[in-house]
């Protein structure tokens, strides 16, 4: 299955992936409309210290601990990717604690959000990958 992979060697720490992620999942058709004067809560996040930086998002593990831990059944594997049904999420935060990568976070509404490879939004392909200026984030079969 194709997944999002990150190559730290080429990450510039420009944080554009975060903004493309926030835009992709905003439901808006225009980046300015989606993000202007808006504090973003992206599903991919740059970890950085000194000169090292890299993006972290869901690995879509084959045996995801988040899915195992989910008490409400909101987290499911669909077509190989881990998806979340926010209507079903009770916001207990178990998945956040379970995930060894820190790839899940809370939305403003209290439910949990995570990378769903842009499969549910209008882009269809991960927008962070398309927006990365240095091919530090790739979407490929490995």
């Amino acid at each position: 299955m194709k997944r999002v992979y990150v190559n730290e060697k080429w990450c510039l720490g420009c944080h554009l992936c975060e903004y493309y992620c926030a835009f992709a999942n905003s439901g808006k058709s225009d980046m300015v409309k989606a993000l202007k004067d808006h504090k973003i809560a992206p599903r991919i996040k740059i970890e950085e210290r000194d000169t090292i930086s890299f993006a972290v998002s869901c690995r879509h593990c084959e045996e995801p601990l988040c899915v195992k831990g989910c008490i409400s059944g909101a987290l499911r594997i669909w077509q190989g990717a881990v998806h979340i049904n926010s209507d079903q999420c009770v916001g207990c935060g178990t998945c956040i604690l379970c995930c060894p990568y820190g790839a899940l976070s809370r939305t403003e509404q209290g439910a949990v959000q995570k990378c769903e490879l842009c499969q549910k939004n209008e882009f269809g392909q991960p927008l962070c990958v398309q927006g990365c200026p240095n091919k530090a984030i790739v979407y490929e079969e490995r």
């Binding site: 510039l12 720490g13 420009c14 944080h15 554009l16 975060e18 903004y19 980046m31 300015v32 993000l35 202007k36 808006h38």
Partner: peptide, 13 residues
């Protein structure tokens, strides 16, 4: 400024 979303990519780059 109507378009700037203060992502700070310009500053970082």
């Amino acid at each position: 400024l109507d378009r700037c979303i203060t992502c700070r990519a310009c500053e970082r780059q």
